[in-house]
Design a protein around this nucleic acid. Sequence first.
DNA 1: TCTATTGTAATAGGTATATTAGTACAATTA
DNA 2: TAATTGTACTAATATACCTATTACAATAGA
Lengths: 131, 131
Amino acid sequence: MIITIDLNNNKPTYLQIVDCVRRAVATGALKTGDQLPTIREAAVQARVNRNTISRAYLELEHLGMIRSRQGAGSFVTDAGPDLEHEERVKALQTLVDELALETVHYQIPVDDVIAMLRESAAKLGKESDHD
Amino acid sequence: MIITIDLNNNKPTYLQIVDCVRRAVATGALKTGDQLPTIREAAVQARVNRNTISRAYLELEHLGMIRSRQGAGSFVTDAGPDLEHEERVKALQTLVDELALETVHYQIPVDDVIAMLRESAAKLGKESDHD
DNA sequence: TCTATTGTAATAGGTATATTAGTACAATTA
DNA sequence: TAATTGTACTAATATACCTATTACAATAGA
């Protein structure tokens, strides 16, 4: 079960789905060429409407992460995101600033947050062993 | 001018205002006891409706950052946020995970992001000298 | 006390987004 | 051919955000 929805999360359902797939690809749970659950399947499993899954998959296709083919299904693409490095860093800056603000505001040592970040990144990058 | 709104930012206006004040407090641009712009003033300066400022100030009051008194104005409070350490860390985890996902996804070295984070946090924490 | 200032409250309207529901169609697969 | 799968479309509903407007209550200052 790749897609899980957290109703408590204020983030839109379709973006949660997008993140789930991105995570799965990052960790290696999904590899290039792998088929995603069909839209109808995923909708049932995640207990959301087909349209919501459809929108998420569309978003993923725009990100260049997957490729959907009518009648066939949706599959993980080898092509990574095609943003320039410059663009990527700029996109990160917003998130970084936000995190920094929270860190300072709540007076949590920056090193603690860095440790959390390292761990979280490691979790994503390493688990490509199991299948 | 403490409050600035970025129309391009998809973040709600009132939350942007909240962040502005939090940043100002973090950097020392606003100190305990300082008066914030009045709701009407701030609304004119930021070119938004009074209600939007009002909502932001209310949010800040809930955060324990400011205290508003009818007829008097809104002032920075000395009491910091009253969340438990446990709670704070949990609140951070979501942001950290999100950042980690972007980092891995875009294949940006974690150390780069950490450098960005350090710089961003330093900017917030240090500028209490001027003024 | 009188008056201006300030925060607060309440209502209404407009816009945008998110989600569901339902139906139909088109391309692929077997 | 027939089932599967993605796609497209409309409609309805709910929610969040922002504006506009009006009125009121507490405070500060002359």
